[in-house]
Write a protein that binds this DNA or RNA. Structure first.
Length: 659
RNA sequence: GCUGCUGUAGCUCAGGGGUAGAGCACUCCCUUGGUAAGGGAGAGGUCGGAAGUUCAAAUCUUCUCAGCAGCACCA
């Protein structure tokens, strides 16, 4: 044993405590005070989280982590919770192997390998045992093991996944094992000093299958999701947030508001009802007007194209498993005969619009003076998505993209990209999504084109981003095979993010499909192609809007903008007059003359999320006024009819990017 | 596509080996009521589909389809 050197620990307030030799966080906390000792969860040593029981051997800046350090505390608690769950599972279900159990947003999961997957019923049993383990207050201790010993040990006890994880750890990485009562697990740590510190603010949420290492070729494991918070109140608040999010579910609101439906004979394709299609048409109209203002020309291209066409574009080899293939043959009507012959010529429903847009570009000779050419299409595309991927409006098989392709010269890439980013930001602002993030997705491992081209393309996109002043992050290796792209992720009202917009730089397709223009020098040149979308698809974007606004669409988008209803039938004639004024002003109004009490009608139209309910009775009829009740308000204002109509009309104006 | 769960009236849901129930919605009648459900009457389903077990199945078994959650994939 060498002579011990004193250890100086500096606390956040700047004060320094000196110890004779190596000291643990627990000792330090106790030294400061019993209250802190009790509250201590871990210690930060030079900014790194350590176990309280780990000895600090050198001078350091330290701070004791307690539940007041919410972020750090939650990291610890959630990870410990995963361990306590794993201990409970292995106690209750011997023979179950543990694999990995990381923290995720709002909680954690742990993947187990077991012949029989867990069921929802098992969760209650496991949760009960977890509370028992917390009550046992088992000490949690950290041990550093030799790599080979660790592999041998985990193999011996039948934990083959753990053994595999250790084998894959880089050489030199210390192998740490945490012992928790009788149980132990390989883990990087850090952990709480004992299971008792976990408390009781946790809940197991659901079970699901998950592939080992996220690869669908590997074994399916059984995953248990849980959530964990610093106290019961936080847990309750979280569960409440989940309930609120459920209320916004566009599938539920879509039914309640009579916007659309889906049925099994047309999986993944939407039946839009009059109310829902009104939103669609408004969105289309809006985007169309913004595109016109930005120099785009709208086109329309075919749905069904010969397989040869897709072979040429490269989709046949790269994308065919997502395409709907259709035989180009008159189906047989003979009984018992096959409907189509096996050697029928094949066509396919388009999954993307880009190759068709190139065909339009290729008609006639293009001069450099013509560029940039910007072709837009509300392109209806079909993609044969996996059944398990389908989800309401968010993931469909028939989708309509607000697609456009810009054909330009290389020297125009930056200005076109900047213009697009500006347009996109302005559209998102108009639609109520001022917040969005940008990712620059760079070259993937398998890619087409020369590295020089990629250098140029990535630099061009990055320059454009710098010019817009937008903040951005990189998504290394996430680019398309033909070029880098920008991904635009917007944030909705409850903090979720959605990737909608995209801007992709493509040097490959113009080459493959032989698009060219005549340059200043009189020679043929390849145009660069920018694939871009702002909404992504109308289906999904409308789904996002429904959830973002919880069904309470802004007036210009609301399917029904106002309902006129009389107190009693005595006011029917005046109600009709009010209704006529609204219609004359171009507003989408409904007239409700039903023989129901006003309470009933107000309730019903409020549930239907009609933005304005116009109630009229004898008083209003006499004074030519209306009583307006706005959605979300519990009272109403009486104003002259002409004023109300004018105000609603102004508010219902479609945004134009100027706001 | 994979794992698990679910599938009863338009919606939400109860029931459960002997031939199906509630609330809301719907239809009709009464009520003319000042801002989130006035009262009464009535009509509506063979229990996702197929096969099997049984004297008898919506209820049990198997298969299948779809929905939901997660995974994988992805706009």
């Amino acid at each position: 044993m060498s002579v011990q050197n004193p250890v100086n620990l500096r606390l956040p307030d700047g004060s320094v405590r000196t110890f004779d030799g190596p000291v643990t966080g627990t000792t330090l906390a106790a030294d400061i005070g019993p209250g802190l000792l009790k509250a201590a969860l871990a210690i930060k040593v030079n900014g790194e989280m350590w176990d309280l029981t780990r000895e600090i051997e050198e001078d350091a800046d330290v701070s004791i982590v307690t539940k007041r350090d919410t972020e750090d505390a939650l990291d610890l608690l959630r990870h410990d919770c995963a361990h306590v769950m794993a201990e409970a599972v292995q106690e209750l279900f011997p023979g179950t192997q543990v694999t990995i159990g990381p923290n995720i947003q709002d909680g954690f999961f742990y993947d187990f390998a077991r012949d029989k997957p867990f069921t929802e019923d098992d969760l209650a049993v496991i949760e009960k045992r977890m509370h028992e383990i917390v009550a046992r207050n088992e000490d949690i201790t950290r041990e550093v093991w030799d790599r080979d010993d660790a592999i041998a040990y985990f193999k011996k006890i039948g934990e083959h996944y753990k053994a595999e994880i250790i084998s894959d750890l880089p050489e030199g990485e210390p192998i740490t094992v945490y012992r928790q009562g009788e149980w132990l697990d390989l883990c990087r740590g850090p952990h709480l000093p004992s299971t008792g510190k976990l408390g009781d603010a946790f809940k197991l949420m659901k079970v699901a299958g998950a592939y080992w290492r996220g690869d669908s070729k590997n074994a399916m494991l059984t995953r248990i999701y849980g959530t964990c918070w610093t106290d019961k109140k936080e847990l309750k608040a979280y569960l409440h947030r989940l309930e609120e999010a459920e209320k916004r579910d566009h599938r539920k609101l879509g039914r309640e508001m009579d916007l659309f439906h889906l049925q099994e004979e047309a999986q993944g394709s939407v039946f839009w009802h009059p109310q829902g299609y009104t939103i669609w048409l408004q969105m289309e109209k809006y985007i169309r007007s913004r595109l016109q203002g930005a120099g785009y020309q709208e086109i329309k291209t075919p749905q069904l194209l010969d397989s040869k066409f897709w072979e040429q574009s490269g989709h046949w080899s790269k994308f065919r498993e997502n395409m709907f293939v259709v035989p180009d043959e008159i189906p047989s009507t003979e009984e018992d005969a096959p409907i189509v012959s096996s050697d029928a010529k094949l066509m396919a429903l388009k999954p993307m619009n880009c190759p068709a847009h190139v065909q339009v570009f290729k008609q006639g000779i293009k001069s450099y003076r013509d560029l940039p050419v910007r072709f837009a299409e509300f392109g209806c595309c079909h993609r044969n998505e996996a059944h398990g991927a389908l989800h309401g409006l968010m993931r469909v098989r028939q989708m309509t993209q607000d697609d456009a392709h810009i054909f330009c010269r290389e020297d125009q890439i930056t200005s076109e990209s900047v213009a697009f980013c500006d347009l996109l930001a302005s559209v998102y602002r108009d639609l109520g999504f001022p917040e969005f993030k940008v990712l620059l997705a760079t070259r993937p491992e398998t890619r087409a084109g020369e590295d020089e081209t990629w250098d140029k393309a990535e630099a061009a996109l990055e320059n454009a981003l710098k010019e817009t002043g937008l903040e951005y992050d990189f998504a290394p290796g996430e680019g398309a095979f033909y070029g880098p792209k920008l991904e635009f992720h917007l944030s909705d009202a409850i903090g979720r993010t959605w990737q909608c917009g995209t801007l992709q730089l493509d040097f490959v397709l113009p080459e493959r499909l032989d698009a060219s223009f005549v340059g200043e020098d009189g020679n043929k040149h390849r145009p660069v192609m920018l694939h871009r979308a702002i909404l992504g698809t109308l289906e999904r974007f409308i789904g996002i809007m429904i959830e973002h606004y919880a069904g309470r669409m802004p007036l210009w988008l609301a399917p029904t903008q106002a309902v006129v209803t009389p107190i009693t039938s005595d006011a029917d004639d005046y109600a009709k007059e009010v209704f006529a004024s609204l219609e004359a002003a171009g507003l989408r109004a409904k007239l409700d003359l039903r023989n129901e009490k006003i309470n009933y009608k107000v309730r019903e139209h409020s549930h239907a999320k009609v933005p304005a309910i116009l109630v009229v009775g004898g008083r209003e009829a006499e004074q030519k006024t209306v009583s307006v009740r706005r959605l979300g308000s519990n009272d109403q204002t009486v104003s002259p009819l002409v004023d109300v109509v004018a105000a609603l009309k102004a508010e219902a104006e479609m945004p134009s990017g100027k706001a």
